[in-house]
Design a protein around this nucleic acid. Structure first.
Lengths: 355, 355
DNA sequence: TTTTTATATGTGCACGCACACATTTACTTT
DNA sequence: AAAGTAAATGTGTGCGTGCACATATAAAAA
């Protein structure tokens, strides 16, 4: 019994009564095909389910693809260091198949740098671009450059609706905040105050953060627990006032929980909380960064919502490779699961390879 | 600039001053190589880092692999139906590369059936076996059969220490219970009783369940919250007494939480809880099955710990394919993350393709 | 020495596809 | 009608590997 005998181009050619060359031209619509031949091939194609052998395709079209990754400098920020790990993994994984990934780091706090690097990327005319467009307004002209140069690009981490990428990889931010709220509310019977901490050095990706914070507040409003009060804090850790503001916040006796919308801010707020020595405050933050991990282990942080930066980047590259090399269509939006991390399951996340 | 130029067998041959055939024989140690030639090739091999092009390898050695999946009948149980979905997905994914997967379902409640089907699998002499060894004692002789027939096998769902598979895919069960306990304890300030429900039609995979339940109890003991009482219930939903036992349990005013160690039991207990109309009981169960989803959405179930049966099976097949087709080594133990599912993040899990 | 046998080594084809190039066909221009 | 031109179609080669088979070399038997 013949098994797994899939249809080859040669088979289609025979069925249609043409040569493989003609079938090839039809499949890739390279033109130079008569109306008659095209008809014959498409008829066959409609009857059978042709799935090109991707293995053979990659081997046959022995091409090199260059992908540029446009992300904030990973050496300056632990979150983006994680993203970079994903890029490096993708790089080594695809290296032997002629895919090379170049990272173009820009300064997280410098919009001009973003602009400059974006232009540099286009000048290298790579075959594809992975981009974390954390600067909302500045990214629009970058996308225009990409489109002009006809370079396909994939967004990750931050979605920009005006951009027309081949795909976006990230999370539902509103829902992310709602989970924070749900976890915050769990088992809270008495009237209490919860703080939403917007900790950021700059306002650059505030849209990103505001969306989460809105989700958090929305959830409380929907559940209409009037007994809960939500207070907002806009903090800049570089400012002198940061420490005193935190102390002021923590001295509120009604404070029963803190939600921080940034991964970096999580560690900062946790440090302040641990210094203050108040133990009965539930704290929810973002991402399994080593700093945050410390506070999760010590019990200061109760929950981390994992944004999975490493996997986001890894998948971003994969989508580009699929698009370029395998000509496979990729989902226009790949929303990652909103992973809830606690002291008790964090190791299961660290231990497992990819997930 | 040449990029991604990896070393080919041809290159090694040239460097070693022999033909590609000789290199091939050395690489696959097929013998028929002189001491001299072997020396020359190994010398070159030690100097360079040869990574065979797996794409070309699979294309060249145009083999067919048959994999047998030995799992409980998916038509009789929603949990195993999920596993089966993973197997089906793997099947379609690998079909065009000459991998076929045959499912051999056995009766979840019948050990003899397991024995019989296991023997039938060996008689088919597949190239690899994926097996969910839910019957502890009965699986040992099955493994011996596999070993005698020299068929590589991968375990999933349940680990058996005596088995020497090429890999195991599953979760840390003890830790799984601990997460249940952590989530249970969160925000519980007053003295309370928590019930551990061991709901099973049979005792078949009790080891599996007992491990989780032990983790649950261990966590409470470690945190030494004397004010909490843990009560154990062994229930059989097929027995008449089930309903009355559940009612009896729920009438305990101190009862503040229920932990169920099976995915099926989760829905059963949730139904009883919803009937009883008691709202302030925290309930934690297992897996995103449609039944359980209903109760998660209605708020009766607070947390589901996801065992990801679909992905477990999918990855199990992948490991076998890697082992057989790509000759790549696979991790001896792939422990999945212990995913915490709530009303607010369940959609992010359902929506994302693979995760 | 010639033949046999065993061992060692090299060569060539197939896998399915992409792509360059050769060839054929249909049609226009001289 | 012959030559020229463009479009249509077919053929052939390479990608890197595995494997079958052909050839070369050496040692043993005649």
């Amino acid at each position: 019994m013949e098994i797994g005998k899939s249809i080859r181009i040669k088979d289609i050619a025979k069925l249609a009564g043409v040569s493989v060359g003609t079938v090839d031209r039809v499949l890739h619509n390279r033109g130079r095909v008569s109306e008659d031949a095209l008809q014959k091939v498409t008829t066959v194609m409609n009857q059978i389910d042709y799935k090109p052998n991707l293995i053979a395709r990659t081997l046959g079209s022995n091409k090199n693809y260059r992908i540029a990754a446009l992300i904030p400098d990973p050496t300056l920020d632990p979150y983006w260091a994680q993203s970079n790990l994903g890029i490096i993994q993708a790089q080594t994984e695809w290296a032997q198949y002629g895919v090379i990934v170049d990272t173009f780091p820009f300064d997280l706090y410098n919009k001009d740098s973003f602009h400059r690097i974006a232009r540099a990327v286009v000048e290298e005319h790579p075959d594809g671009i992975l981009i974390a467009p954390i600067f909302y307004h500045e990214s629009i002209p970058a996308f225009e450059l990409f489109q002009e140069a006809e370079i396909p690009y994939v967004l990750f981490n931050t979605n920009i609706h005006e951009a027309k990428p081949i795909g976006f990889i990230g999370q539902n931010l509103n829902q992310s905040g709602r989970i924070g709220a749900q976890l915050m509310m769990l088992g809270q019977h008495d009237p209490a105050t919860f703080a939403v901490l917007h900790i950021d050095e700059d306002v650059h990706d505030s849209v990103h953060l505001l969306e989460k914070e809105k989700g958090f507040r929305d959830y409380f409003q929907e559940k209409s627990k009037a007994k809960f009060e939500i207070v907002d804090f806009n903090l800049n850790p570089h400012q002198e006032a940061f420490k005193t503001q935190m102390i002021q916040l923590l001295e509120n006796d009604m404070l029963k929980g803190i939600y921080v919308s940034t991964s970096k801010g999580t560690a900062l707020a946790a440090a302040a909380l641990e210094d203050h020595g108040k133990k009965d405050i539930r704290m929810i933050g973002y991402d399994i960064l080593s700093e945050n991990l410390k506070y999760l282990r010590s019990g200061t942080v109760d929950f981390l919502i994992n944004q999975n930066p490493k996997r986001q980047a890894l998948l971003g590259i994969s989508h580009l490779v699929n698009h370029l090399m395998f000509k496979k269509s990729t989902p226009p939006m790949d929303l990652f699961p909103l992973e809830i991390i606690t002291q008790q399951n964090v190791d299961s996340y660290l231990g497992s390879g990819i997930h």
